[in-house]
Design a protein around this nucleic acid. Structure first.
Length: 693
DNA sequence: GAGCACTGC
């Protein structure tokens, strides 16, 4: 390995990551195994953040905004809410909120904090995530929630008046909801000077966050200002990770999959025992890498390697393999996507191999298409990946790019999600909160005006916004109320008119789940056959109705799912979402009605939401090429669709996925005259040119 | 002939 690698000139150092001392999937080390309160208290005091308790409380007392830079295992997430509670911030009926970008983290942190405070979860300490509200209105003083839920709460309580302090954790990840939340919190602060905001962020982002929240206008007027200082305070808390030594390649690699496999082999050869985590970009890479490694290990007679894939599409049981203990004398190699960068914490990793790439979403507002492309990661991501090696003992990280590339070419932080996404949901949420001047909204990072305008256009075409870009009544307000993509919400509202809301909320629930089929490559043929049992000539949406019906008739049986290659957990989720939609539609005064098999009604309701996603088969096309009616984009039916190779003339699709081609996922056949019925304004021009009568 | 990661009363 010494020929291949050169130690970086950068000195080995502590590497940060984001969880404040909470180890997901490591619940056995907590009090349930017999530690009493006293021991928990001692553990708390040993956390690095403990030393800063007074400083943090002082800063929160005197500053409107405090930015906490916390490294690995600093304990900030679990401890700061408790400090605030002890200092009296939850007195007088007030509450302390702490947001996380992910549900799992919310549950884990809340559970841990309840344990440390020796209270029952759901009483003094509670949490709220979608479908799960473990809080008690009278008792709960410290509340953990996803930032998406807090945004929803603002619809009822725009000033978030019940909270005295709001801590936004993992702000450096710059997720869509976090950015919207930060923009809104800044606005709230102006109206509620007594509100305190704590933002926990990685080092790299701290300064820009501070600049964003700095609302102090003029230095001289400082003495006249009432209340806390407007200029944010920045506090830094060290972590408790181990050293991770960094290595770079001498020359750029041409094939990072092959290179990752060779590196794993060298580590296995030359380094002491310890598991390896390899960051690749997707399922394809991962499958190829595992195959290559198996071959290389076989041909060189090397033993003792156990390779495990890890990506979100993997069935739950297979994902759990990653957490099973490595057999004695073996070395586990986990080939993972970005999922291991933030969402999952793996124990026992000592070596990290970083390809330097990940798949990232990019949105093109001109074509209104979201693309998934392999792109170089940022320095922040690279640090995060490296940090995964230093959790149990000092580790090593092998970067499959040159040190020169890292220093001079890699961007410091990634592009915030809000600048890479379709903004339709985001715009409607702001409108619902009464923010009229969307283009002038103060964001932590501004999205492009093109994306904003495109979102406004789409919402206008859906009849959600009027000529003055205000929410229409009742449609606009109703669509904003439903926590789904506005196109789906519109479809639900239309179903009322067509008398098929029972069917449409089922379809809406299925569409909001990733996939209801079991994702297995080896048994593709059986999966296709299973699909045929439910396939409807009208398309995928109607097929979903058949699957749902079968699932209900089987009495929601997991056996039935297994037999039919249907993902049982996904179907449970469908039931859950459907129940939620049922409640919401009832509140909106939409009566649930079944069309009793009138499929045309169902398809018309779908068209009412998705008219913009219409495509027409190219005449004389031999390979099933379609063009979208709106922008004449070349698109194809996705191979997973029941209409693949059927190629009906006119279709409406739910979404596009872009790989080497643009694939339409979930399609139904339509009659083109429905398009002009559903959106006359939208299709007026195209009517004569592209739709034959 | 094919699926980065999250999320929402």
């Amino acid at each position: 390995m010494s020929q291949f690698w050169k130690p970086g000139t950068e000195r080995p150092r502590l590497v940060d990551d984001e969880e404040g001392g909470v180890l997901l999937y490591a619940t056995s080390s907590s009090s349930s195994s017999g530690f009493g309160y006293g021991s928990l208290e001692k553990q708390r005091q040993r956390l690095p953040v403990y030393k800063y308790k007074t400083a943090i409380l002082y800063s929160v007392e005197t500053h409107a905004t405090t930015i906490i830079v916390g490294e690995t295992g600093s304990g900030k997430t679990t401890q700061i809410p408790q400090y605030l509670k002890e200092a009296g911030w939850a007195e007088g009926g007030r509450m302390i909120a702490c947001t996380q970008p992910r549900r799992l983290a919310v549950q884990a942190v809340a559970t841990r904090v309840a344990e440390e405070m020796d209270v029952k979860l759901g009483e003094e300490v509670g949490y709220t995530i979608r479908f799960e509200d473990i809080t008690n209105e009278e008792l709960t003083r410290v509340k953990f929630l996803t930032d998406g839920v807090l945004l929803r709460e603002m619809m009822d309580d725009p000033l978030l008046s019940k909270y005295s302090v709001i801590m936004v954790d993992e702000a450096h990840e710059r997720s869509l909801s976090t950015d919207i939340l930060l923009g809104l919190l800044k606005k709230i602060q102006r109206r509620r000077p007594e509100l305190r905001i704590i933002i926990s962020s990685a080092t790299i982002e701290a300064k820009s966050m501070a600049a964003f929240f700095n609302t102090r206008i003029c230095r001289r007027r400082r003495e006249e200002e009432q209340g806390p200082t407007k200029e944010p305070a920045i506090l830094s808390v060290e972590g408790r990770g181990f050293n991770v030594e960094l290595f770079y390649v001498d020359d750029p690699v041409s094939d990072y999959v092959q290179s990752a496999v060779s590196t794993v082999m060298s580590i296995h050869d030359q380094e002491r025992m310890g598991d390896i985590l390899v960051f690749l970009t997707g399922q394809d890479d991962i499958d190829t890498a595992i195959q290559l490694l198996t071959e290389e290990a076989q041909s060189s007679g090397k033993q003792g390697l156990v390779s495990v894939p890890l990506y979100s599409g993997l069935p739950r049981a297979d994902q759990d393999l990653v957490f099973s203990p490595t057999p004695r004398g073996k070395r586990k190699v986990i080939f993972s996507t970005n999922i291991a960068e933030t969402s999952l914490t793996l124990e026992g990793i000592v070596y990290v191999v970083d390809s330097g790439f990940s798949k990232q979403r990019f949105y093109n507002p001109i074509s209104d298409i979201e693309n998934l492309v392999v792109a170089p990661i940022s320095k922040a991501s690279a640090r995060q990946r490296a940090g995964r090696a230093g959790r149990v003992r000092p580790g090593k990280c092998f970067r499959l790019y040159t040190e020169d590339y890292f220093s001079n070419e890699m961007s410091v932080v990634g592009i915030p999600e809000i600048q890479r996404s379709n903004l339709v949901s985001c715009v409607i949420q702001l409108k619902a909160l009464g923010i009229d001047n969307i283009l002038g909204f103060d964001w932590p990072a501004s999205p492009s005006p093109e994306s904003m305008i495109r979102a406004l256009e789409i919402l206008y075409s859906l009849g959600v916004l009027d000529d003055d870009a205000k929410l229409t009544s009742p449609t606009g307000f109703q669509v904003a109320e439903i926590p789904l993509d506005p196109l789906i919400s519109k479809m639900i509202l239309a179903s009322c008119e067509f008398g098929c809301s029972e069917e449409i909320i089922t379809i809406a629930a299925v569409l909001s789940i990733q996939s209801i089929w079991i994702p297995v490559r080896g048994v593709q043929k059986q999966l296709d056959e299973a699909k045929l049992r439910f396939a409807a000539a009208e398309g995928d949406h109607v097929t979903f109705l058949n699957v749902y019906k079968g699932f209900i008739q089987s009495n929601k049986s997991s056996k039935w799912c297994h037999k039919n290659f249907i993902n049982y957990h996904a179907m449970r989720k469908v039931i859950e979402v459907r129940e939620q939609l049922k409640r919401i539609t009832q509140r909106l005064g939409i009566g649930l009605k079944s069309c009793e098999g009138d499929i045309q009604a169902v398809k018309k309701a779908i068209t009412a939401g998705f008219f913009a996603n219409a495509a027409r088969l190219e005449p004389f096309s031999h390979n099933g090429m379609y063009k979208t009616l709106r922008t004449s984009q070349e698109v194809y039916i996705h191979p997973s669709s029941v209409l693949f190779r059927v190629n009906p003339k006119f279709i409406v699709y739910h979404s596009l996925v872009s790989t080497d081609r643009q694939y339409m996922r979930n399609v139904i056949t339509i009659d083109p005259s429905w398009l002009t019925e559903a959106a006359p304004h939208f299709y007026q021009k195209q009517l004569h040119s592209s739709i034959p009568q």
